[in-house]
Design a protein around this nucleic acid. Structure first.
Lengths: 155, 155
DNA sequence: TATTGTTATACTCTATAACTATA
DNA sequence: TATAGTTATAGAGTATAACAATA
């Protein structure tokens, strides 16, 4: 350990270098978005992942677990626990596929559809509040930029 | 704009509902940005967090651990391990503060400053590549939007 | 042999309580 | 009492190998 060099008091901290990096800002924004989203979803007994999985199953009834894992960009083993939770709560069912006895067809229950619709409305309202300072065009521009970044990673 | 995420067989999966949510896109973009950034930092023996901490210390020599934790929005206990790594590699030092014997002043070493500059250059080049499809104005607009989201979370 | 869903496991990241030594 | 740094720990999130049943 060193000797005495410097001291800081009630001083402002400069993030001059980091501020010019996109990753820095996206990480911080993501942190807020995720916390906000999870708080909104909590009354429904859902988290960001479980909600995303439920939405996908409602939008694509009959899909298989491997498809869902690919679509959500998560690993198959990690999806199992998520689906267990949704199934235990009676929001989805794993139905046997007659043409392939290894696979399950994922389907939403009536309750699952209803909860999904409510959660989606709550979510929409929450994001509208959070993004109130942005015009529809600005919002679309940000989403386009995010998509571009996502594509760039594959190249 | 396509709604198709992936083709596992002859079947397309629709993410129509999720596509309209900002959180969905920011999460996916963040995943790419972080993977990309960490790959760029690997040759320097740094990760995203250790790099961020190093940059902050270089930009704000003498700052204390509590200040740094606040600035990076991470918990104090988690910062300890990060600083341990930077200190073991001789990139920073924890120097005693004469006016407060509880605290340490964080300072970069010469080696730390040098590595920080190299890593920052590599980072800049990497982000320029990833964001090549965006004009400077578009980039600034995205960063402004991210800042707005970050502020909104506090309200 | 390859694939579907599963189990077990491990590694990172993050969050909280409580300790020590100072203030 | 309160604060700075630390320790221990627990919870998410994420990644890989390997297994049983089936293709």
């Amino acid at each position: 350990m060193g000797e005495v060099v410097k001291m800081t008091e009630a001083v402002s901290v400069s993030d001059a270098t980091l501020r010019s990096f996109m990753g820095y800002h996206v990480k911080r924004a993501m942190s807020v978005l995720q916390a906000d989203l999870n708080a909104t979803l909590k009354p429904f007994g859902l988290r960001m992942v479980t909600y995303s999985a439920l939405v996908m199953i409602v939008d694509n009834p009959g899909m298989r677990q491997t498809q869902l894992a690919d679509a959500l960009a998560i690993e198959r083993p990690n999806l199992v626990v998520i689906l267990d939770q949704l199934e235990e709560r009676g929001l989805i069912s794993r139905d046997k596929v007659p043409t392939d006895r290894r696979a399950y067809a994922l389907n939403p229950t009536e309750q699952g559809r209803a909860l999904c619709a409510e959660a989606t409305d709550a979510n929409r309202a929450d994001e509208d509040r959070l993004l109130a300072g942005l015009s529809k065009e600005q919002r679309a521009a940000v989403i386009a930029a995010m998509n571009l970044i996502e594509q760039g990673g594959e190249a």
